[in-house]
Amino acid sequence: MFYIHQSSCISPQQTFKDADLTVLHGPVEKQLKAIEPTYDAIPPGVLRRMGKAVRMGAGSALPLLQEHGKTDGIIIATANAGKEDCVKFLDQIVQYEEGMLTPLNFVQSTPNAIAGQLGLITKNHGYNITHLHQGLAFENALMDADMRLAEYPDHQYLLGAVDDISVSSYTFEEKEGWHKQEDISNKDLYNADSPGSIAGEAAVMFLVNNIAAGAKAKLVAVDTLHSTDEHIIKERLTFFIQQHLQNNKADLLLSGEDGDNRLAHFYDMAAAVAGNETPIAHYKHMCGAYPTASAFGLWIACEIFKAGALPEHMTGSLLKVSYKNILLYNSYRGYQHSFMLVSVA
């Protein structure tokens, strides 16, 4: 597919600029909240008016857009962006009984605000799009970038995913039963044996193009499907592995398991398909559960290639590694599934 050159990540862990994954930061009030930097790249007047998702998106993307040459377009994935302003505007409608309302929340409630703001701030007139499809929004963004780079082989794109925890998005998920009732440490996420997970958030950005030289990683393939039938998902994952991996074996399975015991059987299935010899690492205890979390998984995969080591909290024991490829499997709420294969460049 294409090559990943630069990456940037604002997450509940120390991932922005100088990443340090050895220390695991835990949840606050049952939420894994992003460690937000000071956002030096955003003009203060503009920053004040930004909602959290736009702020995190712009804050993670602008260093890449400003420091690494021409970018031909902006491809963003988000499922929740805008929800905070959306509910604020709803509150206005109800509170003032459809009276004289201020438009700021309405304008910012549109989920294309991140891509739009990035286009505006960097005067980028190129391709500009926002993918929203829940737990597969980021995978669709990947496919979009892949198609653009086939259509315009010398282009470079900003490709990213942003979802934030807002009071309202948290309340919706809480009512739908996607959070753990008990207050647990993220260290214990995979042993909890209870429904739900810990809410999370992050903004992850990549610069991608067709140039192998100097790349951090190569995205080899991505596939998605909607199903709740484990057998169908198993068939598709098996086919995916056969199609894209020599010896049908991945060096590492980076599992999107999120500690929800209702979904654990999907991840057990993926581990079985990957095979006994393939070690497993996790990442949702670091970023929490949110729709575009697989983007954080891809960022982690790039870091694993770079660091050559995995911290103990990801695997259960410290691993020194020289992986050539990493398979990612993720399920969103048990009905959306994605497979990604990423390799060293």
Binding site: N112, Q134, L225, S227
Partner: peptide, 16 residues
């Protein structure tokens, strides 16, 4: 999707 059992790529796009 659930009504027609789509199993291929599915996407929801927003550009306002």
């Amino acid at each position: 999707q659930s009504r027609f059992h789509f199993s291929g790529p599915i996407n929801t796009i927003n550009t306002a």
